[in-house]
Design a protein around this nucleic acid. Structure first.
Lengths: 328, 328
DNA sequence: GTGAAAGCGCTAACAG
DNA sequence: CTGTTAGCGCTTTCAC
């Protein structure tokens, strides 16, 4: 591994000049800069991040604290964050919590001082713990809104509401909602929104779950949902809906003839030809990008913390939503 | 952030003693050890990994180079690796390559010297590049076998072969295989195995794809597969099979009456009640654990590189596989 | 068994 | 604009 000193020698300058050339090119004479760059390229020089961290106090790492890597939504968020981070030569450290608050707390504790900031995806910690964490390191939250903490969310409650309204117009009377992870802030918001809508339209909202948002859980819930007599069901995410559809298929329940369906995210359905399933288009990658950018801005220490944002979701009502089957 | 010096002061010893107490407890008198530990706990001391990296040359980071976070198989591998790593107080850095060799090469280049080792999941680089990388840093490969590089794979070709054999016994004559990512080593192995089997049994193997292993691609491929007249189809992974099943469901194609199906991994189907789909149980978490352990052993520098392993896959033939429909 | 001192590779004043 | 100097927080000889 070539070091600063090696490059300096090769370029005939001092180590500090090399350092400056790399991190503040405008402070170096053009001619020198060029020589240094040539030498650095020649030797394949890459600054040792540990050494840099020691002097600057910035580690060049961002922590992504994620409940579950099987859920493609988080995959999207992480991809987005990674792209944003690598542009600034920052790396992503990943911690899987299985949605357990104690593991979230452990990540916050163990990684404090080792990263320049934390992106917590759908955190389950208390608001108090989250705001407390913010005092020790830059923190942003994705898929939950926490007062006092920069948060990035998608407006899935709003999107679901639109689907719900449409179901009402179509003449549905009983609409199911298969709820997501217990303790999920976002799930609570969606339910609250749907209840409100149901009340206004005089529809019955049937709530199922909460369940872990996985294919198997969706499949397992199908039974109860069908038995309940719902003519439509909204699922917390696309994995759950996939599970439902799988079981519906096995039992010969036709979509949307016998049952209308929709999901609060489109991760599994993205790029499907002909959009056969109504699902909210959720900007997962964009959420990740914003989270990383916000964290880096905070670590940059350029003043106030970045504003929270709720990104709109897109709904395209498609063939999976239709009028209810004739009353039995 | 409490430092070594703070703990030393609190415990009434020198910084070196604290350092030893933390990393080589046996070199410290029991009584001293206890005092130091108490002080460290009291102050919430955590060694600064950057400083440690600088002196020891070990960074405490492992790179996970992964093609695609939407694929739950990689989620499993990463979870396993993370658990193994955190036990030794090592962190995971993640890089998403989208299955592009140049991004793989970039990760190897940019992270060299910044991590203690690389776990490459389903890498697409040439064998030459991979073996070359091994000279610069510890490298292990998951889901591919590379001569001279410690590799961890699951015997999915063998598992698929068993399913294929069973289809033969059941009287199938035309079996489809929906192939995975172009350039995938593992996919080539599976095809080779299936071709061999087909030859021996006098079955026709119909190959579809290769396609990106995602739900949408499975759905898109359903058309062609049905049209081909296959009575059974094996899919590169469970995401693809889900896509197929989704389309089959829409068209009223019944499984297994009209079509037998199976997938080469069970990630999406894990924990499904009643195992309605034949899929190989792939030890993803275990693969990740082994990869991390091997890397840490290599970084430990305790001599020879760890041996490669192919882990067995489990097949339980279930209701999604049956005799072919009567010839039309 | 413990302390003093040197130094890992870099950045950041501070002179010049 | 560039070089010199002093650490960042640890680990590690080397004495004691």
């Amino acid at each position: 591994m070539a070091g600063l000193e090696d490059v300096a020698r090769a370029a005939g300058v001092s180590a500090s000049t090399v350092s400056r050339a790399m991190s503040r090119p405008d402070m170096v004479a053009p001619a020198t800069l060029e020589r240094v760059r040539a030498a650095a390229a020649e030797l394949g020089f890459r600054a040792n991040p540990a050494a840099r961290a020691l002097t600057t106090g910035r580690t060049g790492y961002l922590a992504m604290v994620v409940p579950d890597l099987h859920n493609p939504f988080y995959g999207g968020v992480i991809s987005g964050a990674q792209r944003a981070a690598e542009r600034r030569d920052v790396r992503l450290v990943i911690t899987v919590t299985d949605g357990r608050p104690e593991r979230e707390a452990a990540a916050l504790r163990d990684l404090a001082g080792q990263v320049d900031g934390f992106a917590l995806l759908s955190p389950v910690s208390t608001t108090a713990d989250l705001t407390a964490a913010r005092r020790r390191a830059p923190v942003v939250v994705v898929n939950r809104r926490v007062p006092g903490v920069t948060s990035f969310t998608a407006d899935t409650p709003g999107g679901l509401a639109r689907i719900f309204d449409r179901l009402g117009e179509l003449g549905h009377t009983d609409v199911g909602y298969l709820a997501g992870p217990p303790g999920s802030w976002m799930d609570r918001r969606r339910r609250a929104e749907l209840r409100d809508r149901a009340g206004r339209h005089g529809l019955r909202l049937r709530e199922f779950g909460p369940v872990r948002p996985a294919f198997a859980e969706g499949a397992a819930a199908a039974d109860e949902i069908v038995a309940s007599g719902c003519g439509a069901v909204l699922a917390y995410n696309s994995l759950l809906l996939l599970g439902l559809l799988f079981e519906f298929g096995r039992w010969g329940i036709r979509v949307p003839t016998d049952m209308s369906v929709a999901a609060a995210d489109d991760m599994a359905f993205a790029d499907l030809p002909g959009q056969p399933v109504t699902a909210l288009r959720v900007p997962a990658v964009e959420l990740g990008r914003r989270a990383a950018d916000a964290l880096l801005a905070m670590a940059g220490g350029t003043g106030r913390r970045p504003a929270s944002r709720t990104l709109p979701t897109e709904v395209t009502l498609t063939g999976s939503v239709a009028a209810p089957p004739a009353r039995r």
